[in-house]
Amino acid sequence: MTLPKIELGRRLFYDQRLSVTGGFSCASCHEQARAFTDGRAVGIGATGEAHPRNSMSLANVAYGSVLTWANPNELTLEHQALTPMFGETPVELGLAGKEAQVFATLSADTTYARLLPAAFPGESTVTLATITRALAAFQRTLISGRSPYDRYRYGDAPNAISASAKRGEALFFSEAQECFHCHGTFNLTGATTWVGKQFVEQEFHNTGLYNLGGTGDYPSPNFGLKIFTGLAADMGRFKAPTLRNIAVTAPYMHDGSIATLDEVLDHYAAGGRTIASGPNAGVGSANPFKSDFLQGFVLTTQDRADLLAFLQSLTDSTFLTDTALANPWPPGSPGNPGGTP
């Protein structure tokens, strides 16, 4: 982590030449104003292909012990970057087979020619190693910790959040609602690591979102952790995402199948979602692989408003507008031919 490496990574993160079409970038699915999500149910790649899953927020991704919805094996951002760059099913950036061409194009760019030696002394060309390391460095600066809730909880502003949000916090951390069991730690997800921790804590949970045929199945291909372990009991187990900036990252769940936070509360209050008809019909609350913490609860109108107020207090507007994290390529410049702001 050096300033030149971070700046190089920011350039790459927003650079549309880092795609098969030349008009798509990491930021196409990870927009700063949406806490680095895209507002869609599922991501749409450079070629228009739909990803099976929702684009995750990158807020505080540096602290993630799990980096994606269900992959327990991608443990570094350097490693993870390979998937969107070169993945073929689905195509995201679509760079498979285009490596040499893209590296040559970027190496010839005057901006990279200037940034590269400062970021990686002795390196004169853009390579896969320099790209992934620089992207990782930039992503590790995507720190969200200045929400009203942070000023209330960790700062010295006891009135930074409303009384309703404070009541919502109490509900969130209560044994009745159980939210914090999966959304714990400062990052509001148990899949979090930090300096000094001697153990890797990876957690995946089935929240009863589906129960196809009453056998616990989730719609293909989103089988969750089972994809990687092959274990039947891992069906539908996904990472609990951070709840920071959750109010601006709709729609929700691994497949974007819940549109609003209000409906998310319905899902958890019911202890799982029931889909009455159609190909995904099933009683999610009866999913045999569901987490023990999904017991359901009853919310009064006030409770619901309080929980929503708490979740909204997690929106870090500083993070969403910080120019240090914004697109450095002016519209019409080499990295931004499409004129994305």
Binding site: F180, T185, G196, F199
Partner: peptide
């Protein structure tokens, strides 16, 4: 918990500042 020394920095064994740690977790 995020500042506590190991082994007191395990998210799975911590409730909250108020409740403290799960002394025994047997699931």
């Amino acid at each position: 918990v995020s500042l506590a020394p190991s082994p007191l920095n395990l998210a799975a064994l911590f409730w909250s500042w108020q409740g403290g740690y799960k002394f025994l977790r047997l699931d």
